[in-house]
Simulated assay, not measured.
Amino acid sequence: MIAELTLLLAIAALIAAAPVVGQLRALAPQIVKLQADLAAAPQVRELRYTIREVIVARDTAAVVAFPQRLAPPSGSPVHWRKAA
C-alpha cells in the first residue's frame, strides 16, 4: 500500500513539474539575452522627474496647484533636500 502511494505521489510530482521544466527550456534563450543586455548596460543611468504639489481645500473640494519650482542641478550638494 505504501509503495503504491509513493509511486502515485512521484508520478503526480513529475506531471506537475513537466510544464515548469518546459517553460524554463523555452525561456532559456530569453534569459541569456537579458543577462547579456544587463551586462552590456552602462553602470550609471540618469533619472529625470517632476515633483508636483497640490493642496485640497476641504471646504470647497477644489484642488489648488502650487507653481512649479526648478530643482537645483544634479551635482549640487543640496540637490535632494531642495527637490523634496
Results as ranks from 00 to 15, higher is better:
Ala61Gly: 12
Ile51Ala: 12
Pro29Phe: 00
Thr60Leu: 01
Leu38Thr: 11
Ala16Gly: 02
Pro72Trp: 03
Ala39Ser: 03
Leu47Val: 10
Leu5Gly: 05
Ala18Gly: 04
Ala62Gly: 06
Glu4Pro: 03
Thr60Lys: 00
Gln43Thr: 07
Trp80Tyr: 15
Ala17Arg: 01
Ala36Met: 02
Ala13Tyr: 10
Val20Lys: 12
Pro29Tyr: 00
Val44Phe: 11
Ala36Asn: 01
Ala12Phe: 10
Arg48Asn: 12
Thr60Asn: 03
Ile11Tyr: 00
Glu4Asp: 13
His79Gly: 06
Ala65Asn: 08
Arg25Phe: 09
Leu9Asn: 14
Met1Arg: 12
Gly22Thr: 05
Leu24Arg: 07
Gly22Asn: 07
Tyr49Ser: 07
Leu5Pro: 06
Gln68Met: 08
Asp37Tyr: 02
Ser76Ala: 10
Ser74Cys: 15
Leu34Ala: 09
Gln23Leu: 04
Arg25Gln: 07
Tyr49Gly: 02
Thr60Arg: 02
Ala12Tyr: 07
Gly75Met: 08
Gln23Tyr: 11
Glu46Gln: 08
Leu34Ile: 13
Ala61Val: 11
Ala13Pro: 14
Leu24Phe: 11
Leu14Asn: 04
Ala71Met: 09
Ala12Met: 04
Ala36Phe: 01
Leu38Lys: 08
Leu14Lys: 06
Ala61Ile: 05
Pro19Cys: 01
Arg48Pro: 03
Leu70Cys: 06
Val21Pro: 01
Ala26Val: 01
Leu7Asn: 15
Ala61Lys: 07
Ala61Leu: 15
Leu38Phe: 03
Leu14Ala: 07
Arg81Phe: 14
Arg52Phe: 13
Val32Ala: 05
Leu70Val: 09
Leu34Tyr: 00
Arg58Glu: 11
Arg58Met: 11
Lys82Tyr: 15
Ala57Asn: 11
Val64Tyr: 02
Leu34Trp: 12
Ile2Glu: 15
Ala17Trp: 07
Ala36Cys: 01
Arg25Ala: 14
Glu53Asp: 12
Val64Gly: 03
Met1Gly: 11
Pro67Ile: 02
